[in-house]
Simulated scan of single mutants.
Amino acid sequence: MNWATGRVLAIVTAFTFLPASELHAQQIWKWSGQIGAASEGVSKDVAETAGRGQLRGAVEAAYGPVFLGASLRNLHEGPDVDSQQEYVLGTRGKLAGFDLSFSGGYKIKGNAPSGFDANFVEFEGTIARTLSSGTTLRLTDVYTADAPGPARRDNFLEFGVAQVIDKHWSVSGAVAARTITPKSDYTGMNIGVSYALRPKTSIDLRYYDTNQHDFGNDFKSRLVVAVTQGF
């Protein structure tokens, strides 16, 4: 069992011991979603729309600690891949003051050329804690054993910090390490500020960079503005 799988299993085990009151409280379906637009699409600190804008939409249905989700966004990866669909099943809850979540997602690269490995499963686990000062500390691990394209194992480990300033303003940042087989590892970072225009409407200005500019333009620094509307 590799180190990434061990962390995933640890998160799953933690949910096994959640108190019954957490697991069974208010068992009704709750629906939510969001739509968003960004000056450029970025995933795991790397550009995914080659300097073009991005539109995305997502919906989620939660029943107690279990949630189902679906999302769609445009991409520009090479001459063909133009979108990505995601279908997610997961669980979330609290344990000893920590917010825990774990999910598995089936993801599809749209309009992929013949022979391209466009379908893959990705697992994500997060542990977070919000302090009385309004500071949130977060550790997220994203892992797949069969990444799209020529890659195979892909693990993205990120530590993030967010600070609420007031009812409108917040700042956040994160550092991450990504390990990919065949080897094309890099470290990344982002830092930005968000402003809540309305309770479910926000605008975010964020700077991204990696330590591997030699990998190509997608790995170079960039400034991205994004607007999100929840419902």
Rank of each mutant, 00 (worst) to 15 (best):
A96I: 07
L137I: 14
Q212F: 00
F156D: 14
F98L: 15
D214G: 13
V164C: 04
S133K: 07
R92E: 14
T181M: 11
H213E: 11
Y208K: 03
T187M: 13
R153E: 15
P199I: 07
D166H: 02
L139N: 08
A151S: 12
T140W: 01
V142K: 06
Y207S: 05
F215T: 05
F116D: 11
T140M: 08
D141T: 09
K94L: 11
R222W: 00
S114F: 07
T201D: 15
S132P: 01
Q212C: 07
I108P: 01
R138N: 11
D146P: 01
S132K: 14
F102Y: 14
N155R: 07
S194T: 15
A151Q: 10
I127Y: 03
D99P: 03
N190I: 03
K183D: 14
D166I: 03
V164S: 15
N211C: 05
F159I: 08
Y195M: 08
F116H: 10
A176I: 01
N119Y: 00
D141G: 09
H168G: 09
G134F: 00
L157C: 07
T187Y: 06
S114A: 15
Y143D: 12
S114V: 15
N190A: 12
N119L: 08
V224E: 04
F156R: 06
L131E: 11
R152K: 15
F102W: 12
S202L: 11
L223K: 08
D154E: 12
G188T: 02
F219P: 02
G188Y: 02
S202N: 13
G104D: 12
P150Y: 02
I127R: 02
L137H: 02
F215R: 15
I165A: 09
R129P: 01
D99M: 04
Y186L: 10
R152Q: 14
R138W: 00
I203D: 05
P182S: 09
L131S: 08
T135R: 10
V224L: 11
P199M: 05
F156G: 07
K183I: 10
T201M: 14
H213Q: 11
V175P: 03
A118M: 07
V224R: 02
D166M: 04
K220Y: 00
L205F: 05
D99A: 04
Y106Q: 12
A96T: 05
F159K: 11
L205M: 11
A147E: 10
G110D: 02
V121P: 00
G134L: 07
D154K: 06
T179C: 06
N111H: 09
L157Y: 01
F98E: 07
K167Y: 02
Y195H: 10
G216K: 08
T140D: 08
R92D: 10
T140K: 04
T179R: 14
Y106G: 03
G97K: 05
A128C: 06
E124R: 06
P150N: 10
Y143P: 02
P148Q: 11
Y207V: 03
D185V: 04
D117G: 07
N217L: 14
G188M: 08
G104Y: 03
